[in-house]
Design a binder for these strands. Structure first.
Lengths: 151, 151
DNA sequence: TGATAATATTTCGACATCAAACTATCTGAC
DNA sequence: GTCAGATAGTTTGATGTCGAAATATTATCA
């Protein structure tokens, strides 16, 4: 199933693992998308709403780093959310460079309408794994995600 | 580190695992991008070149499904690759709906120039895991990627 | 104070991505 | 043979994504 690459044993092992990891997340996200649990908001929009919902109002820059997206990108995503009335921008009174992003009523209810189904879909997708497999996956991902130099 | 969500134990465990998986692949891909091992081609372009390089000339639709991207997307990616002379389109003589995509000389050398560094970067990133961890990760991902209904 | 550095966001250009509508071509049933 | 439906790609429109350069504002410090 992997590639037709021929290399050292370590290279083969790494490529094989990498491809399985990539395919796994790809098809997992595809299946989640197909379930359409998010309704008419996009995954990015969901991520932003969800972050603000759980953490509270944040600076636009804080939202970017929470959601692991670039700042320039966050501008457009929040533009669209604001256009749809789901969030509200507010200039900081003291430091007028920063913008605070708040959920509106509509944003809160939109998220609350969507969140349970999303979580249920996740639980269902992951139910193919045993508890110990989930723990192992979590631990290995944590290690791999952290990387070498992040001491 | 996960979210502030409060739910059943199964929900918490699932969310925690999901977030670790997502963060892991996110930061892994970010680090790979920062290494800039692909030079001036994009990840999508690399994926297409790599697929054709290893599997051989393919129909545009076959490339789409290999790379797990939509057909409409593949049109533009291959447009850009063709513009840069890395790939060549060729109508099928018998079935004129079909387009075969071939690597050009330039495409082959571009890929061969870039592939070793890419693999080396992968090996380095994954070297933080032990062999048995890589195997466990691969197996769990295979299971999770396959999903419930794909018997 | 006033020049310079730092920070937060926006703008711009290029690419990616998908769904839906469309074109061209082929196949099969009649 | 012809026409309906299937199939391969393309186009279009909306969103997302990044990096680099621009803008606006605030902080620093000589």
């Amino acid at each position: 199933m992997p590639t037709h690459f021929t290399g050292s044993r370590a290279e083969m092992r790494t490529l094989d693992t990498f491809i399985k990891l990539t395919r796994c997340t790809n098809s997992l996200f595809t299946r989640l998308t197909e379930r359409n649990t998010l309704g008419d908001i996009t995954p990015s929009q969901f991520a932003v709403l969800e972050a603000i919902y759980h953490i509270g109002s944040m600076t636009q820059g804080e939202v970017s780093s929470k959601v692991l997206k670039s700042g320039s990108n966050m501008t457009t995503v929040i533009d669209n959310l604001e256009r749809d009335g789901l969030v509200r921008r507010e200039r900081d009174a003291k430091d007028r460079r920063v913008i605070h992003v708040h959920l509106t009523e509509a944003g809160t209810s939109k998220l609350e309408a969507v969140l349970p189904g999303h979580i249920a879909a996740l639980v269902e997708e992951f139910s193919i794994l045993s508890v110990s497999e989930m723990e192992a996956l979590g631990n290995i991902c944590k290690k791999l995600g952290k990387g070498r130099e992040s001491k």
